[in-house]
Design a protein around this nucleic acid. Structure first.
Lengths: 165, 165
DNA sequence: AGTTGATGGTTCAAATTTGAACAAGACCTA
DNA sequence: TAGGTCTTGTTCAAATTTGAACCATCAACT
């Protein structure tokens, strides 16, 4: 409860106290959660959260394969970052790069058997963290509210267009 | 801490569809939002989100100054990362390092006048993004729900202790 | 076919982050 | 007071991320 944010109340275009509380809570918790997730994944499987997300998206995709650009869009990472991480996952045999049939330029990232097995082995511990620190504390109502809020936000950013790097 | 997760691994509890939707929505939106924030801050002020958070926390602190460790805790970053970023902010004159009086080892990060001015100048654009893409889409009820959820999650992580540094 | 303008993916240098190691103080207690 | 043990903050090498530059291909025309 710090009153030092004088600018907070000077102008209505700043955040109200209630809004500010929500934003600060969101911001702090997202950082803490990310830290916990990284910690657990690293310890139990050597994966980073980014890598886990890549594997999970591939696993959920039809044929367990996705074009690089589409994968980057789904995981929300830059092309160069995805390129690097796919290279890393390829090196440890969890993913394979296959050149695309219909588009000579294209590359299809494909989950290997080993990759699927790694994900299967890793998911429970990861989801346990997600549960223990977030999901299990939400009532069904809270869960739907969170989903609704997050989707509205995503839609707003979608509508704004532009910054996909 | 790793052992703590192990018992859950034995009896994997997958996420229900509703839970998974919430988690996925949260995850995706948090990435998208971070991207938007980074983009806006970089364009309008040359700051990163991390640096902005540091300045904001300092500004809110009594005397606009905080010990390194406390600042790292509030912003939720590692000590080495904070050390690097404070060095960067110091180099451009937004922050000063002052040695602590009561503890010879200690360092007090202090917001300079220039730093305060930079924050003042930068905040509106930043908050506009936070509003446009998240806050303004939340009803008062949704806002309180989000705050409640996030605080419960933070509390759960707090209670779990042994947080990484 | 040839031109033009987007798109897909990689690559490179520079900047940042990570995590462990380190030095210097503080703190406890016998 | 000495010895042992936390704490604080920095530093270093290695890993990762960033963002622009780049090449090859595609798609739509002419």
């Amino acid at each position: 409860m710090n009153k030092t944010y004088t600018w907070r109340v000077k102008e209505p275009r700043w955040l109200s106290e209630r809004e500010f509380d929500a934003w600060l809570a969101y911001l702090t918790t997202s950082h803490l959660l990310e830290r916990r997730i990284e910690e657990q994944l690293k310890a139990d499987s050597g994966l980073t959260h980014s890598q886990y997300e890549i594997l999970a998206r591939l696993s959920a995709a039809p044929g367990k394969r996705l074009r690089m650009t589409e994968l980057a869009r789904l995981v929300v990472v830059s092309k160069s970052r995805l390129s690097y991480q796919i290279g890393r996952l390829e090196k440890i045999g969890l993913v394979e790069r296959v050149s695309c049939a219909s588009d000579e330029r294209g590359v299809v990232a494909t989950l290997t058997g080993e990759g699927a097995r790694c994900l299967e082995r890793t998911a429970p511990g990861h989801l346990a963290v997600v549960r223990a620190f977030l999901i299990d504390h939400c009532s069904p109502d809270e869960l739907t509210t969170m989903t609704r809020i997050m989707r509205k936000a995503a839609a707003a950013m979608e509508a704004a267009g532009s910054p996909p790097s």
